[in-house]
Design a binder for these strands. Structure first.
Lengths: 224, 224
DNA sequence: GGTCGATTAAAACATCCGTTTGACCATGGC
DNA sequence: GCCATGGTCAAACGGATGTTTTAATCGACC
């Protein structure tokens, strides 16, 4: 089943490589598989990308550049000034919107290749990992920190950072443990609306945690 | 660097295989690498375990049987009746002890092979995944649910389950994203006491969340 | 029309892979 | 002593792998 034909050889290689690397990993995918799927010669990979590793790197570069622009397109990257001025109600809305967007983005349907490739980089970090961090994880963490900082004022930078990590952690968790979660649920894929429903839970859980920690900090401050 | 010598061939194979499968994955590890590390002949793997896949399966069986007994040894598996009778203070202590034990277990030092093998099964599920679920994830989830159920009485089973997932999620997250977390921190491994410190954060975060959700449920009940 | 650089194609290369074979060796029962 | 048995070994097998080589093809430009 070759990829769409009206594209350059290098693009078709990239498309096929995304599919197969995501599905079977670097070691589990052969140049010949990729070439066959792309409908090109085995030598094309080396000609256009130098080596198998070069092709893999190009795949991740392309994917996570796309991730960044996709997230920007969905408009969940409001200018920092907007977050600074937002009311509590607006902050909560932004929080849930962000969590929902990330989950929908990662869980599909169909399940995106991004999540799988990211997971693979956690298993076997390559020189592509810095790209993923820079293009996806770092900006998402910073934006989340900005939101959290407004939701729990006067908290130490480190506390804010830990909380942002807990939130992002819950989100990524639902992607990374998908095979297990589905097995526990005895289903073959997440049901319709699962991302939204899960986002609601994570939001509720996390906002209660944040509010509780803020209240705790206030009462400790009074006791001093 | 061969493995200790005063053991049977099949045991030395298993030891070497744990190391290498954890480090480089199934596809990334060759029978020859394993045999060399174990100091035995290449044919030994097939003789004792039938095939490479058979050896891999044996590795995971052994590892996660060990996990189960190790967790039992650490005494964080109190009989269900103890949880049923525990005071709030005791429940909180059990909660933090469980989170701490899981984190110390997963993060090391040195980082355990279990976590890495588990992560690999999330990437490429094999017939070993049911073993991991049955030996580790399922029991941990059930125990956590039991604790959570006591901490937020009268909650629906589904809510309890979601919360338990959020807690386990945060714990596994710190293992799964280790390469990224370390990169963001610009360190090569987690500092001493990191597991304990992180367990404190997860406990604080989660208990605040649970208490908040419990209070929210109560006030909604009153409004009705 | 011819030249040249860029691209594609087929074939070959060397290496590595999982697996199998058949010989060798120790041990224990008869 | 001798065979049966279970374990270990070097060697080889067939196939797959990433990569390279070499030749053919295409398109633009003078």
């Amino acid at each position: 089943m070759p990829v769409a034909a009206d594209r350059t050889t290098s693009d078709r290689l990239l498309d096929a490589a995304v599919e197969l690397f995501a599905r079977h990993g670097f070691h589990g995918t052969s140049i010949r598989d990729i070439a066959e799927r792309a409908g090109v010669n085995v030598a094309a990979g080396h000609y256009h990308y130098g080596s198998k590793a070069g092709l893999y790197l190009a795949v991740l570069r392309a994917q996570f550049a796309e991730v960044r622009s996709e997230l920007a397109r969905r408009g969940i990257e409001p200018p920092a000034s907007a977050v600074r001025r937002a009311s509590r109600r607006e902050l909560v809305r932004l929080f849930e919107a962000r969590v929902t967007a990330m989950l929908e983005f990662l869980l599909g349907p169909p399940p995106s290749a991004h999540g799988q490739l990211m997971l693979r980089e956690m298993c076997d970090p390559t020189e592509a990992l810095p790209i993923i961090v820079a293009e996806f994880i770092e900006p998402q963490t910073r934006e989340m920190e900005r939101l959290v900082a407004r939701l729990i004022p006067d908290a130490a930078r480190e506390v804010v950072s830990d909380i942002a990590f807990s939130v992002i952690g819950q989100v990524l968790f639902y992607r990374f443990t998908m095979p297990v979660a589905l097995r526990l649920r005895r289903e073959s894929r997440y049901p319709r609306g699962f991302a939204r429903k899960t986002a609601r839970h994570i939001t509720t859980f996390s906002l209660n945690a944040i509010d509780g920690m803020a209240a705790g900090a206030r009462s400790r401050a009074r006791a001093r």
